[in-house]
Design a protein around this nucleic acid. Structure first.
Lengths: 190, 190
DNA sequence: ACCTGAACACCGTTCAAGT
DNA sequence: ACCTGAACACCGTTCAAGT
């Protein structure tokens, strides 16, 4: 089985993902990436013709993995509070892991620098999250309209992204915990 | 009166601020900045020795102007709900103005790329906002402890930054409006 | 199929030199 | 005091050339 091509592609993506979550899309350097995986920068372009192709591939993969994880949660429990706790933990774990951020959250902040194909994937990530959150919310509030559920879901998604952004900015994960607690106390999160 | 030096410094800062709010700190280019204000890039270094000096100056000025505006609000009314509405409007106006973001919010997302002096100023902006929000909240809930007030204030700050981030990512200001409404409905914002 | 070296136009920064 | 041109080591991208 030919493993070299796939392996090198995967190695580049792994290194790139870590860099983006820590430093953002702009900080991605084909030369540094190449050094990390042991090839030349021109060779990285063989796997990903442009930086936009690499960014889009990262975001797509990130959304896929996130969707799979959330689907697993959905299959495990129908308790809204339990699912929300697991959800908040995902974003917490990024901070716990070397003060990293949600790949698509950090890319949102760099939006105007992103090539169109990367934006598209970032949008899809937000959509996937809102879909999932609306579904979980529908258990807690079965009477609410689809419109209201999605609005509430979007609010939770934005609030959690914001908590991560601010806590990361302060380099203090305790701020994330306190903020999530305040959201719950205020009734924003079930 | 010698106006050239001050004027050029101000011109550089104005151009730089617009660029950062739209494209982030990383997108700041001394060469493009120089072109915009009609000097050479080496001359920009005369006013701001490094990019970090420029970034820190921008954030400091931004915090000062924000603090002055919020102090004005505080002097105008002691109604918490009214103050919160005005506060949410400030962040809305950045989006309305060409989908721009809070200068310090967008810089938070690029945190690891920021020189230490810029980080310091970004931290001060968050602190200034939390101070103000806690004070406004104390009117609505005089019984709460200082600790609880600050926690709630931090949650509001994070939630609003998040709403701005996500709405900007979707290039849809209506998402900001809906999210703020959901925060209010949930009781996060008075 | 996969990788490379060399070239291109960019970047922040430095510095000696101009006025 | 303020500005400049030239140099340095970086960047993404392209392309002809190697295996």
């Amino acid at each position: 089985m030919a493993k070299t091509k796939t392996d090198m592609r995967e190695a580049v993506m792994a290194a790139a993902r870590a860099t983006v979550q820590s430093h953002g899309y702009n900080a991605l350097s084909f030369r540094e990436l190449a050094k990390e995986v042991g090839i030349k920068s021109a060779s990285v372009h063989y796997h990903f013709p442009t930086k936009g192709d690499l960014g889009a591939a990262l975001a797509r993969r990130y959304t896929e993995e996130g969707a799979a994880f959330l689907a697993e949660l959905l299959a495990t429990s129908v308790d809204a509070a339990w699912c929300m706790d697991r959800y908040a933990e995902i974003f917490r774990s990024a901070l716990a892991n070397d003060n990293r951020m949600c790949l698509c959250g950090i890319m949102s902040a760099e939006l105007d620098d992103l090539p169109a194909e990367v934006r598209t994937e970032v949008d899809k990530f937000a959509e996937m999250n809102v879909d999932w959150l609306a579904r979980v919310l529908s258990w807690a509030k079965p009477s609410q309209s689809e419109q209201d559920l999605r609005e509430h879901a979007m609010a939770i998604f934005a609030a959690i992204e914001g908590a991560q952004l601010v806590a990361r900015g302060c380099r203090d994960i305790a701020i994330y915990d306190r903020t999530i607690r305040a959201y719950r106390k205020a009734g924003l999160i079930p």
